[in-house]
Amino acid sequence: MVDPLVEKAKNGSEHAFRMLIEMNKQYVFKCIYGVLRNQKDAEDASQEVWMKIYNSLPQYEHQGFKTWMTRIAVNHAIDCKRKLARKSEDLVDELPVKQTLDSAETRLLKKEQKQLVMRYLQDVPDSYREVIEGFYIKEKSYQQLANEQQVQVKTIETKLYRARLWMRKNWKEEDFR
């Protein structure tokens, strides 16, 4: 079924395109934020995505506007995330020697912190231990953990949330100093 609003926007109606933006801007923002996890970056990327959608409208072939729009938004967000990662790698490469030494010290402190957490992990309920160890110790992503445990990413998020609550309730901050 051809959406008349999309068709009008495709034929050059700025009003129709503004209406499409109004109807879908929250959805597009959520798609982008889901990838970038940063409010400002997601807002900037949303603006860029709407420009891409506008410029790509002539190529749209009525295969489902929301799906098409989502694909553009998510692909752009992934590109932005890659650019941000490259930019931070470039910054690290340009750090002076003193800051590199500081980062070695930071790595050592992180390693000690991990070892301390490993000792305390014995007390954590089995249902939380696996996600805590995977996320904090082995530094796996939510997606990797979900794939390994054959569950949805949302399940991993929930397990980690509950595990953090358990740790706050049962561990004392002074034990980690």
Rank of each mutant, 00 (worst) to 15 (best):
M1P: 06
V2C: 09
V2K: 06
D3M: 01
A9P: 00
A9L: 01
A9K: 00
K10V: 05
K10L: 09
N11K: 01
E14V: 13
A16F: 01
F17K: 01
F17E: 05
R18A: 12
K25H: 13
K25F: 14
Y27G: 08
F29W: 07
K30Y: 10
C31M: 14
I32W: 00
I32E: 02
Y33T: 05
Y33S: 06
Y33I: 07
V35P: 00
L36S: 03
N38R: 02
N38D: 12
D41C: 03
E43S: 07
A45P: 00
S46H: 00
S46F: 00
Q47F: 04
V49H: 00
W50A: 12
W50N: 02
M51V: 13
I53R: 00
P58K: 03
E61N: 10
E61R: 04
H62W: 02
H62L: 02
H62D: 13
G64C: 11
G64P: 06
F65P: 02
F65S: 02
F65K: 01
K66V: 13
T67N: 05
T67L: 04
T67G: 14
W68R: 02
T70N: 06
R71S: 14
H76M: 09
I78M: 07
I78P: 09
C80M: 09
K81V: 09
R82F: 10
A85R: 02
R86C: 10
K87V: 10
K87A: 15
K87M: 07
E89M: 13
E89L: 14
D90I: 07
L91N: 11
E94L: 09
L95I: 14
K98C: 11
K98D: 12
T100R: 07
L101I: 15
S103W: 09
E105M: 10
T106L: 09
L109W: 04
L109F: 15
K110W: 05
K111I: 12
E112P: 03
Q115K: 08
M118C: 15
Q122K: 14
D123G: 13
S127D: 10
Y128A: 12
E130D: 12
E130I: 14
I132W: 03
Y136R: 05
I137N: 05
E139A: 13
K140W: 11
K140Q: 15
S141W: 02
Q144I: 08
L145V: 09
E148N: 15
V153W: 01
V153P: 00
K154H: 11
K154G: 12
T155F: 03
T155M: 03
E157F: 07
A163H: 01
R164Y: 08
L165W: 00
L165F: 08
W166T: 05
R168K: 14
R168F: 10
N170Y: 12
W171V: 04
W171N: 02
K172P: 02
E173N: 05
E173I: 14
E173P: 00
D175E: 12
D175Y: 07
D175T: 05
F176E: 03
R177W: 07
